[in-house]
Design a protein around this nucleic acid. Structure first.
Length: 930
RNA sequence: GCCGGGAUGGUGGAAUUGGUAGACACGCAAGACUUAAAAUCUUGUGCCCCUUGGGGCGUGCGGGUUCAAGUCCCGCUCCUGGUACCA
C-alpha cells in the first residue's frame, strides 16, 4: 500500500540534499540577495527540545519561500561555542572544553538535520575555533586602534589622532574619552615620552583597560556585565555578585550612545524591544550645577533633569561611595557617617535593591550653597543616591521628587513648594509640573521636565542663568556605562595584548590567531590570576607577559553574522565585496532574552566597523522578530501518602494525596498510559490506580520546559512518530510566531491528517500514483489562486499559522472536488514546499521533475480567477442582517438599491415607510436605515 | 511605580485593519464501515428561547462615536513581558 511513509521519505531526501549540496549559496551578485538569520545556539549538552526549533522553522520557511521567489538567500547556521557550561564541565572532569563542545555540536547538527533545514553548512561558524576567533581578535585590534570623533559622530583611526595631537594637542577636538583627560597643547604632547603618549592614547581608544568597579562573582571566579546579573545574582548559576575594583578591558560603548539611540528609528524592530534598548541607554537631558561647600574650597557638582526646581532645593545628598566624603564630614558627625558608610558597604547589592522603601541616611555636618539662590542647605549622605549615575551628588527637591520627599519627611528636613497649587496639598509631589512660585526669576514660568511635551521654558531659563553665572552647564546624561570586556575564564578568546611596563600593546597581526594555550587545570592560579596564568612558555617574544583575561561570551556573537557572508576567507574577516553584496541582515529571528546584551553590543561593533570602512551598513539587523517561548506542559499524578496507589485527578480530593510530576511522554491528552507508567520506575510496578470513567486523568500546569519537571519533549520523538514535516507545520500552526505558548500535542493529529490527505490527492483508490492532464475547471483554479494569494501574503507577514490553515482549506476543497489535475497540484506543491519540504520533494519527483523542487519558481497569483460572476450582499436593516441577495458583480448601485427596496424582508421592516438612507458598500454590504 | 503586549466558544487560535465574529485545528456528539476496537469517511457543534419557521444574546467590565465596532474614543478590572532609589 502506497501509504505516506515519512520515515523513508525524509531520510531519502535529507541524504539527497546533503549529497548534492542543495543549499549551498554562492555570492552571486547577479541575483537579488536576501539574508535570513537565526540567533545561533550555544551547543549545550542537553541537545534540542521542541522549543528551540520554533524560530529556525519559521526562518527556514521564509528562506525557502524567498528562494522560490527568485532571491539568492543566505540562511546560515553556526555555534556560539565559548561559554560557561563547557568550562565548568572541564573544571569537574578535566576534559578540554573543545572536546565537549565538539561532541555537543555533533548532537545538535544531527537533530537539526532531521528537521530538514535548508542551512548552508559550508558557511558554518564556530566562535571557539581559531580560524574564527582570529578575526574576533582582529576586530578587537581595530577597536583598540580607533577613537570616536564627536564632531563628526564617527570612529576614526588612532593614527589620525596622533597627527592631530602633534599639530594642535587635544584642545581642538571633541572626542569620546576618559572624563579626567587634561587638556594639552602640541608642544606639551611632543615632550611626552612614548610611554606617556601611549597612556594618553588609552584614554581615547574604543577599547581600553580600566580599574573600574566591576561586578565580581566569586563562585564563577569572573566578572560579569550588568545584563548578566539578575537581582544581584549571576544569570548563569544564580551565584551572588559583589562590587569590586579590578583592572578590566572595557568597550567605549558610551561613545556610540547617541548613534545607538538614533538608529533605532530606522530599523524594523518591535516597539517593546526598541524601548528596552532606549531605557538601557537611558538618555536624559538636564544640567550640572555647582554647589560650593561652606567654609571649604570644595565644589560638588550635581546632575539634575529639573534645574527649574532649583529654588525648591532644601538639602543636597551624596552617594555613600563618594570620594570626597572624608573631607566633607565634620568631626562631630564623623562617627555616625563612618558607621553608616560601613553598613551600606556591607549590604549586598540585593539587599539594597529589595529594600528600596526603607529610608536611611546621615548628616555630614557640612553645608553647601545653592548656586542660584545663595541659600545654605545641609549636606547629607544616603544610599538612595547611586555613585555610578550622574555625579553621585543629588540636589534634593522634596516638594517635587518622591524619594526626596520621603527622605525629608523621615529626617524632618524642610520642604518648600515651588509649583503653584501644591502648597495646600497633603503631598506636593503629586503635582510635578506647573507654574513656578517662590522661585525668584523663574516665578510665573512653567516648570516641567524638558523631555516632556512642553517647551521647558523654566528649565532653559535656569540653565541660561547658571551658565551666565558660571555655576552650571547644560548636560546630557546616559544610564549606559562602558561595557566590561574581560572575563577571568579559560574558555574564551584570548585578548591579543601584551604588557610592557604595564602599558598594553597589540600583538602583530601576523601572530593571529593568538591561540588558547594548553593548561593543566581550568581554575584560577594560586595567586588569584585567571586560568591563563597557568600557561607555560606563553610569553611574547619570551619577554613580556600576555593579557590573561579572555573575552566575554558576547565577543564572537557581536560579529558572527558578518562571517557567514564570507566564511572561508582566511585573508579578511569578510571581504568588502561579500559585505557589500549581502549588506545587512534582512530578517533576524531569535529570542527576547538578548534584548539588550547581544543586540546592543553587535550594533556597537557593526557601527564601528562601518565607520572604519570595512562594511557598508551601520545597523546589522534591518528587521528583527522575537519568537515566543515554547513552554512545557507538566502533568501530575496523585499518590496516596501511605500506599502505592494513585488517584485520578477528579477523585483526588477524597484522599490524602501527594502531587507528583509525571513524565509527559507517558501521558496523552491528560490520560495516563498506565502500562508505560508501571515500567517508568521499578517502584510503580505493582501500583494500584483509582480511575474515573475507566481512565486515569492527570493534572497539568504550564511551566518552563525542564528535565526537572519531566516535561521536556524531544523533537526526535515527535519526528519519529509523525515526521519532520508534521513537526514543522504543527509548530507553525500552534499560534503566532511571537506568542509564547505551551507545547501540547493535542492538535498534531490534525496536521498529520492534512499531510496524509495531501499524499492521497496523488494516489487513487488502488494506491497508484495518478495525476490527470485534464484542464482544470474554473472552480479548481479559484481554489488554487486563493491559496497562492493567502499563503504568499501570510508568509510575507510571517503569519505562518494562518498560511497552514489556508493549505488545509485548499486540500479539503480539492479533496471534495476529487481534483488530481497536474495543472493544480504542481503549483500547490511548490507553495507547500517551504513548510513540508520532504513530502513535497518526493511528490515532485513522482510528478516526473528532474530538478529539485527548491529550484522551482513560486507560482504567480492571478486575480482574474478569483473574480466572481455574482456577489452575495448581506442586506441589513438598522445594522442587523435580515437577508442575503445576489447581484451581478458589476451591478450599478442604483439597481442594487431598487432591488433591495422591493425585497419582501426589507419591506417588512420598513412597514411601508421610506428609508432614511441606503448604504451600498463595495465591500459587499447593503444597509437600510429606517 | 513606570514602559510595552494582551483579554474572542469546552481548548489553541482566525477575522483581508470599521463591513455576515468564531477561519483552520483539537475536543465533543451522532451516523457509515467493522463481530468489535483502532483507523477512515459523513454530518453537527458560540450561548439561550421556540415544536418548526424563526427569534434573542454574544469578542474582560461600564460608557461613547457610527448606518455598521472584537477593531475607533473615554473610564475601569484582570493577566503577561520588561524595568526600576537613574536625580
Amino acid at each position: 500500500m502506497a501509504e505516506y511513509n515519512h520515515q523513508i521519505i525524509e531520510s531519502k531526501w535529507q541524504e539527497y540534499w546533503q549529497k548534492n549540496n542543495s543549499y549551498k549559496v554562492e555570492n552571486d551578485i547577479s541575483m537579488p540577495k536576501y539574508y535570513v538569520l537565526d540567533m545561533f545556539p550555544y551547543p549545550s549538552g542537553a541537545g534540542l527540545h521542541v522549543g528551540h526549533p520554533l524560530g529556525y522553522i519559521a526562518s527556514d520557511i521564509f528562506s525557502r519561500y524567498k528562494r522560490l521567489k527568485g532571491f539568492n538567500v543566505l540562511h546560515p547556521m553556526g555555534f556560539d561555542a565559548f561559554g560557561l557550561p563547557a568550562e565548568q564541565y572541564a573544571i569537574e572532569t578535566g576534559q578540554h572544553p573543545a572536546i565537549t563542545t565538539k561532541n555537543n555540536i555533533e548532537t545538535f547538527k544531527g537533530q537539526l538535520a532531521k528537521i530538514g533545514f535548508s542551512f548552508d553548512w559550508s558557511r558554518e561558524v564556530n566562535t571557539s575555533k581559531p580560524e574564527f576567533y582570529k578575526w574576533t581578535q582582529w576586530i578587537f585590534m581595530q577597536l583598540f586602534n580607533a577613537w570616536f570623533d564627536k564632531n563628526e559622530g564617527k570612529a576614526k583611526s588612532i593614527l589620525e589622532l596622533k597627527i592631530i595631537f602633534e599639530r594642535s594637542g587635544n584642545t581642538n577636538i571633541t572626542a569620546a574619552c576618559d572624563e579626567n583627560t587634561p587638556l594639552f597643547s602640541a608642544d606639551e604632547w611632543k615632550v611626552l615620552s612614548a610611554e606617556e603618549q601611549e597612556k594618553v592614547l588609552l584614554k581615547y581608544r574604543l577599547t581600553y583597560p580600566s580599574g573600574a568597579l566591576v561586578n565580581w562573582c566569586p563562585a564563577l571566579g569572573t566578572v560579569l556585565a550588568n545584563d548578566e546579573i539578575k537581582d544581584g545574582f549571576s544569570e548563569r548559576g544564580g551565584y551572588p555578585v559583589e562590587r569590586k575594583k579590578m583592572k578590566q578591558w572595557m568597550m567605549r560603548t558610551t561613545a556610540y550612545a547617541d548613534r545607538l539611540l538614533e538608529n533605532l528609528n530606522n530599523i524594523d524592530w518591535s516597539e517593546s524591544l526598541k524601548e528596552m534598548q532606549r531605557n538601557w541607554i537611558g538618555k536624559s537631558f538636564g544640567c550640572e550645577l555647582d554647589f560650593t561647600v561652606v567654609g571649604k574650597s570644595i565644589t560638588l557638582t550635581a546632575f539634575t533633569t529639573r534645574p527649574d526646581t532649583i529654588f525648591g532645593v532644601t538639602y543636597v545628598v551624596l552617594a555613600p561611595e563618594h570620594e570626597l566624603i572624608g573631607e566633607l564630614v565634620t568631626p562631630e558627625q564623623q562617627e555616625l557617617v563612618t558607621a553608616y558608610v560601613n553598613t551600606t558597604k556591607n549590604r549586598s547589592e540585593r539587599d539594597r535593591m529589595s529594600d528600596v522603601k526603607t529610608v536611611s541616611g546621615v548628616f555630614t555636618g557640612s553645608y553647601v550653597v545653592n548656586p542660584l539662590s545663595g541659600e545654605e542647605v545641609q549636606l547629607w549622605i544616603a544610599d538612595y543616591v547611586l555613585a555610578g549615575y550622574g555625579t553621585g551628588v543629588v540636589m534634593a527637591v522634596p516638594s517635587s521628587d518622591d524619594r526626596d520627599y520621603r527622605f525629608a519627611q523621615h529626617f524632618d528636613l524642610p520642604i518648600r513648594c515651588i509649583i503653584e497649587g501644591t502648597e495646600s496639598m497633603e503631598n506636593p509631589t503629586e503635582k510635578k509640573d506647573g507654574k513656578l512660585i517662590n522661585s525668584d526669576f523663574l516665578n510665573g514660568l512653567y516648570g516641567e521636565k524638558i523631555a516632556g511635551k512642553g517647551t521647558g521654558e523654566a528649565t532653559w531659563a535656569a540653565i541660561k542663568k547658571a551658565e551666565e553665572l558660571g555655576v552650571g552647564t547644560q548636560k546630557v546624561n546616559y544610564k549606559m556605562r562602558d561595557a566590561v570586556f574581560s572575563r577571568q575564564r579559560y574558555w574564551g578568546e584570548p585578548v591579543p595584548v601584551y604588557f610592557k611596563n604595564d602599558i598594553p600593546y597589540l600583538l602583530k597581526e601576523e601572530d593571529l590567531p593568538h591561540e588558547l594555550p594548553k593548561i593543566d587545570e581550568y581554575k584560577p592560579t594560586e595567586t588569584g590570576e585567571p586560568p591563563l596564568g597557568r600557561a607555560k612558555d606563553w610569553k611574547y617574544e619570551g619577554k613580556y607577559p600576555y593579557e590573561l583575561t579572555t573575552m566575554p561570551g558576547w565577543a564572537g556573537s557581536s560579529w558572527y553574522f558578518l562571517r557567514y557572508m564570507d566564511a572561508q576567507n582566511d585573508k579578511e574577516f569578510v571581504s568588502k565585496e561579500a559585505a557589500d553584496y549581502w549588506g545587512d541582515v534582512d530578517l533576524y529571528i531569535g529570542g527576547t532574552e538578548h534584548a539588550v546584551g547581544h543586540l546592543l553590543y553587535s550594533r556597537f561593533w557593526n557601527n564601528v566597523l562601518c565607520d572604519m570602512g570595512f562594511i557598508s551598513h551601520q545597523e546589522p539587523f534591518k528587521k528583527l522578530v522575537n519568537q515566543g517561548m515554547i513552554q512545557g506542559r507538566s502533568n501530575f499524578i496523585y499518590k496516596v501518602k501511605t500506599e502505592n496507589k494513585f488517584i485520578s485527578f477528579g477523585k483526588k480530593d477524597d484522599y490524602d494525596v501527594t502531587e507528583m510530576h509525571c513524565d509527559v511522554n507517558l501521558v496523552h491528552s491528560d490520560v495516563l498510559d498506565i502500562e508505560s507508567f508501571k515500567k517508568w520506575r521499578p517502584e510503580f510496578k505493582d501500583a494500584d490506580f483509582i480511575l474515573e470513567d475507566g481512565k486515569y486523568i492527570c493534572g497539568s500546569i504550564v511551566e518552563k520546559m525542564s528535565k526537572r519537571w519531566f516535561n521536556v519533549v524531544n523533537p526526535d520523538d515527535v519526528i519519529k512518530k509523525y515526521g519532520a514535516d508534521t513537526l514543522r507545520m504543527y509548530e507553525m500552526f500552534l499560534g503566532p510566531l511571537e506568542a509564547s505558548k505551551p507545547w501540547n500535542t493535542d492538535g498534531i493529529e490534525g496536521v498529520a491528517k492534512f499531510l496524509r490527505r495531501t499524499w492521497n490527492l496523488f494516489f487513487n483508490n488502488e494506491d497508484k500514483f495518478v495525476v490527470s492532464d485534464a484542464e482544470p475547471t474554473k472552480e479548481e483554479l479559484k481554489v488554487l489562486h486563493q491559496t497562492i494569494k493567502k499563503v504568499a501574503y501570510d508568509i510575507e507577514n510571517l503569519s505562518f499559522n494562518t498560511s497552514v490553515a489556508a493549505f488545509m482549506v485548499c486540500t479539503n476543497e480539492l479533496y471534495k472536488l476529487k481534483c488530481n489535475k497536474k495543472a493544480i497540484l504542481t503549483p500547490l506543491l511548490i507553495i507547500l514546499s517551504p513548510f513540508a519540504p520532504h513530502i513535497t520533494e518526493e511528490l515532485w519527483k513522482q510528478l516526473g521533475h528532474n530538478e529539485s523542487i527548491t529550484k522551482a519558481t513560486f507560482p504567480k497569483f492571478d486575480e482574474a480567477y478569483l473574480k466572481e460572476d455574482s456577489v452575495e450582499y448581506p442586506v441589513s436593516v438598522n445594522g442587523k442582517v435580515r437577508a442575503k441577495m445576489a447581484f451581478s458583480v458589476d451591478a450599478p448601485k442604483e439597481e442594487i438599491e431598487a432591488a433591495v427596496l422591493e425585497a419582501e424582508v426589507v419591506q417588512k421592516w420598513l412597514q411601508g415607510k421610506a428609508p432614511k438612507k441606503i448604504i451600498v458598500v463595495p465591500k459587499r454590504i447593503v444597509n437600510v436605515v429606517v
